[in-house]
Design a protein around this nucleic acid. Structure first.
Lengths: 112, 112
DNA sequence: TTGATATATACCGAGCGTCGGTATATGTTT
DNA sequence: AAACATATACCGACGCTCGGTATATATCAA
């Protein structure tokens, strides 16, 4: 069966991890930055997604640290996670391309 | 509030209509084609989405025809629908770009 | 002529992922 | 003392899609 399409928050989490391991809160901030403030990950979304991505083998635990007596749990992309993200990115780019081409070739059609 | 992100089937329906009015079944076939067979719109998804998009003012009824004693209901993008699709396409392209850049700069990191 | 496939519309329950809120806990800033 | 940032995690509600079903006509194959 064809690969099911991914939601934006999930895609952004994988993208955040594509530049190296990060902990949950770091992902939230990174995603906010790379999306121009558009995607504000909710705690519920983040940790639910992280658990799901781990179960799917796309993300795994990197290490745990204690910073200022607060736990930091770092996650990283697996090889499968990188592949999956690459596929998704290619799909998004393709979809964007088709839409833009069609919009452009019909840009002057109002009322025609 | 920021514009909520759109799911792939919805995006594809708008894209299909970006090249001109089409009826429901035509949209299904068009979307299958432009997605390389990846997105097979279900009847439930299509008509539910069409109703929602009409309620949101992104799509409107174009005309109705009878072909071979079967009803054909044509839909078209509104100006708001075109704008919305353009925004979405730009967003997708941006997301794909960030993901690809990050994957590329980390392409040789396995085991590092 | 019976069944399968294509065209064409539409509804419905189930499932999944996100949203929004809440809880817990520590450190810093006002 | 209150507010805010850091940091994790759970939970109910909501929305969109999935998968199945229903209806109806036309064509094509067994």
């Amino acid at each position: 069966m064809p690969i099911k399409s991914m939601h934006e928050p999930t895609f952004m989490i994988l993208t955040a991890l594509a530049s190296g391991p990060q902990h949950g809160y770091g992902i939230v901030n990174d995603v906010s930055g790379i999306s121009g403030g558009r995607v504000k990950l909710r705690a519920g979304t983040l940790y639910t997604a992280l658990d799901r991505l781990r179960a799917d083998g796309l993300v795994e635990l990197d290490r745990e640290e204690i910073a200022d007596s607060r736990l930091r749990r770092y996650y990283r992309l697996t090889a499968a996670g990188s592949e999956r993200l690459a596929e998704e990115a290619a799909r998004l780019r393709g979809n964007a391309r088709v839409a833009m081409m069609r919009l452009q070739s019909n840009s002057g059609m109002a009322g025609a």
